[in-house]
Simulated assay, not measured.
Amino acid sequence: MKYYRFLLPAFLLLSIIGRAQTKLSSFSPGAIWPDDKGVHINAHGGGILYNNGVYYWFGEHKIAGDAGNRAMVGVHCYSSKDLYNWKDEGISLSVSPDTTNDIAKGCILERPKVVYNKKTKKYVMWFHLELLGKGYSAARAGVAISDKVTGPYKFIKSYRPNPGQMPFYPALTPEADKVNCVNPANKSDGFFCRDLPGGQMARDMTVFVDDDGKAYHVFSSEENFTLDLAELTPDYTGHNGKFIRIYIGHQTEAPALFKRNGIYYMIGSGCTGWAPNAARWFSAKSIWGPWTYHGNPCQGPDSQITYGGQSTHVLPVAGKKDAFIFIADKWTPKDAIDGRYLWLPINFKGNDIEINWTDNWNLDVFKK
């Protein structure tokens, strides 16, 4: 009898371990997504870097309880070779115990994105930063660097981009379309001119590296009424002063930028706090525009709320043609650690894009 009593708990333990270690072979948008330890992945508002055959997922580390959107730990990193199964690589950027530090524990640190600089051989992380106890008034961009992709990353600085700089305008841009700080034409222009001396506000953001190695920082600015697309310095750790304004006067958050067949695409969202809204997409033949607004790429039931999520990144799948994954977060502000991830394939119809909901899918939907 004692022998059987021992066998039963052992069998149950092995069963639990077996489930935790089951390899995934598909995506289930909105479901709990366990890492290699069986714990739901904790990388919200994140982005993914493909480096030497491995994908690295960086995102906001949330905690249980009433911390809400405050950064109490830092940026979490995971790695994967197949995009389905992720290994916990730990905290790549830690917040500081020093309350005077820009990234002090309890600050707001959102949407981290990491890119690799081939010239400096450094990994560069950008993120939206709000200073401790200041709400959302700071509206800064923060940057950190590392010699190793998983970190630890060293925080360098935070600031508002391009102080004293006027936007770049392509040739033949009408004077009426240029910002005039003597007589601002609209509310968004007014915010731009207000912030001109100290630099433009930088909230929801992404970073994109083009085929020529130049990197660009895209961020919500002017009280979120306009997107800025700004070129970074050659080492990717600062701005060089050249930038444009996109979709002026229309509140846009959550930018995600990618490129296909020489055309630049960007997906974003409206501004409705933590509540989901309709996604929006833009395209341009030049990174400097003009950028054309195309409406909502999502189709079918719940498309007007982006299936309950909000864009954060578009991932090109290595080794596959026209393979891009739309990555969104399903926010749960009352229990931030339970936030879910919506990964869906992007469908191309000519140069147009379309996103459809599917309960379960795998990379076989893309051509090799």
Score class of each variant (00 low, 15 high):
67 A>P: 01
339 G>F: 00
85 N>S: 01
273 G>I: 08
289 G>W: 02
343 W>Q: 10
45 G>Y: 07
131 L>P: 03
361 W>F: 13
349 K>D: 15
286 S>K: 11
15 S>T: 14
178 K>Q: 13
298 C>P: 05
130 E>A: 08
69 N>H: 12
160 R>W: 07
182 V>F: 14
85 N>E: 12
34 P>F: 11
172 L>A: 13
92 S>D: 00
134 K>G: 06
132 L>V: 11
161 P>D: 07
36 D>A: 06
188 S>R: 06
33 W>P: 01
44 H>P: 02
162 N>I: 09
303 S>N: 13
168 F>T: 11
8 L>R: 12
226 T>Y: 02
295 G>S: 02
330 K>V: 12
66 D>E: 14
88 D>L: 12
181 C>R: 03
22 T>Q: 15
162 N>L: 11
368 K>C: 00
16 I>N: 05
211 D>M: 12
191 F>I: 08
218 V>I: 15
125 M>I: 11
55 Y>V: 10
175 E>S: 13
282 F>V: 05
162 N>G: 00
309 G>R: 07
64 A>P: 03
262 G>F: 03
77 C>H: 00
233 T>Q: 08
90 G>E: 07
76 H>V: 04
366 F>H: 11
217 H>E: 09
350 G>V: 06
223 E>H: 13
229 L>T: 00
220 S>R: 06
201 M>G: 13
361 W>L: 12
338 D>A: 15
326 F>D: 00
169 Y>V: 00
267 I>K: 01
360 N>V: 12
37 K>L: 09
292 T>D: 02
123 Y>P: 07
309 G>W: 05
170 P>N: 09
54 V>M: 08
191 F>N: 00
200 Q>T: 11
285 K>C: 04
257 L>Q: 02
70 R>N: 13
270 G>I: 01
37 K>N: 15
222 E>P: 02
297 P>N: 10
342 L>S: 00
267 I>F: 01
5 R>Q: 13
